[in-house]
Design a binder for these strands. Structure first.
Lengths: 254, 254
DNA sequence: TGTACTAGCCTGTATATACAACTTGAAGAG
DNA sequence: CTCTTCAAGTTGTATATACAGGCTAGTACA
């Protein structure tokens, strides 16, 4: 079962490990090819392949003549771009504000326990907040977080740092699953988002993994008249941009 | 401006060209590394890099001991998986039926002309059909196709081959853009999809490019109570599956 | 002081070579 | 005829080497 991994993969795993453990921070310098040749006893071509693939995959950025540097996950594509609504709003030059409605410890049950793969009654934190763009509410975030993953969750000031940004600062998010639905909001959602009677809502249900297990489960409600999801698909190989082979989902205001 | 491309990239472009021109069909054998060494006068490592990257990008599949083969775009991830509702339904073991409501030549104007980047009055074809899963309507497809791209569009039997499948058979789709909205359907949409009063609809507006220009523009309406979009995100490098670094969007019935 | 230049490091690419593991088909043994 | 074995071709990986080109810091020079 435990097949010996190729050496270039071992190198990749090693560096990814240093990044996700926090030993290597964004913009930090990664050992150069020649340094890896010496310390790891590999040939330069093997080190080159490891670093080149990490570059293709967005973990690091390489500059000829300077070196290899850890990518800044926060301003990067992949998962995180999808997650932080404050960044999305800032990108369109608007101001983001948010208002915490509830922030409390809970015991997981029913849907939440099932989504997080934990026993009924496991400690979780429940967050409920409204995000606004230029003062207009556009997202009601209803999130459950595994308490063991983020013990100091309730001490955070989520009006300055979004839960999404906080969670990614703890540990890089590694996998996510989302479902998009259209529905009529219940009374509470409708009022929090200032929606008219009969207005449809766009609901994104997102579950995020870290280190192989789900750690947070969120329902994101948006007013259908003021919100949409846009995606852009590019086939692999046509563009040389670093994120050409991922789908970028962005929330855009109409 | 016109920098000489590296040789491995030239090899990739050459093979991609043969695939998209139709010279190489899905499951066809691609020249082996050693054949490329002889015919293209490159070293085996250069040929290896070209083929390996084409494999990583999903164009081809490589089997040690056998060779390199063109991927089957139709049953593959990337763009096409997203597009064909008949395949999605078949994948869950259900039966797909569709009913053509309208099929007519038109002159593009307004939103359609703008979306397709053509002058007002340009010839397009308008298709309107309902897709059903096990007899239950789940998608109203309202599509405009550039007449110059698919001249024999009106002769097709879209009840056996979906417009999406037909269009991809003409030319590989190269780029797509989509917007997801939640809204209340108008009377016509509501009736075609057998929706209850006050039921929200999930609308996907999709524009697809081929050879650098938009060729089709579709509005896909779904009943909110019976339909959802699911997406799964995997970061690059953790999984070895061929489509690990793309987001797969699938339509799933609740 | 300030400018020009160069040495040294870095990445990017290309080649030649080698060995391992896998697949297939053909030759040979029974 | 059937089974075994083996050779040839294929991909996968690893190494050593080479040269080109970008970047930077420090030195030499004016």
């Amino acid at each position: 079962m435990n097949q010996a991994k190729p050496r270039y993969q071992q190198l990749k795993d090693l560096i990814i490990g240093r990044i996700s453990s926090g030993e290597l921070q964004p913009a930090d310098r990664v050992p150069s090819e020649n340094e890896l040749v010496e310390s790891m006893r590999v040939s330069r071509m093997t080190a080159n392949r490891a670093l080149r693939e990490l570059n293709d995959e967005g973990y690091v950025e390489r500059v000829a003549g300077r070196g290899t540097f850890v990518s800044d996950y926060r301003s990067q594509s992949h998962l995180l771009e999808v997650h932080n609504i404050a960044d999305e709003i800032a990108r369109r030059g608007h101001t983001h504000t948010s208002c915490v409605i509830r922030r409390s410890p809970q015991h997981a049950r029913g849907e939440v326990a099932k989504a997080l793969h934990v026993q009924q009654g496991t400690d979780v934190f429940h967050l409920l907040l409204v995000h606004a763009e230029n003062g207009i509410p556009i997202q009601l975030e209803d999130r459950h977080v595994l308490a063991s993953f983020a013990p100091d969750c309730l001490q955070q000031d989520f009006e300055t740092v979004t839960p999404s940004a906080y969670l990614t600062s703890i540990s890089p998010l590694q996998e996510a699953e989302q479902v998009v639905r259209a529905s009529l909001p219940n009374r509470a959602v409708q009022e929090h988002l200032d929606m008219k009677d009969g207005e449809a809502s766009l609901v994104v249900i997102r579950r995020t993994w870290s280190n192989g297990r789900p750690v947070t489960f969120a329902r994101l409600h948006h007013p259908g008249s003021r919100y949409e999801l846009t995606g852009h698909y590019t086939p692999p190989g046509t563009s040389r941009s670093t994120s050409s082979d991922v789908v970028q989902l962005e929330e855009l205001r109409q």
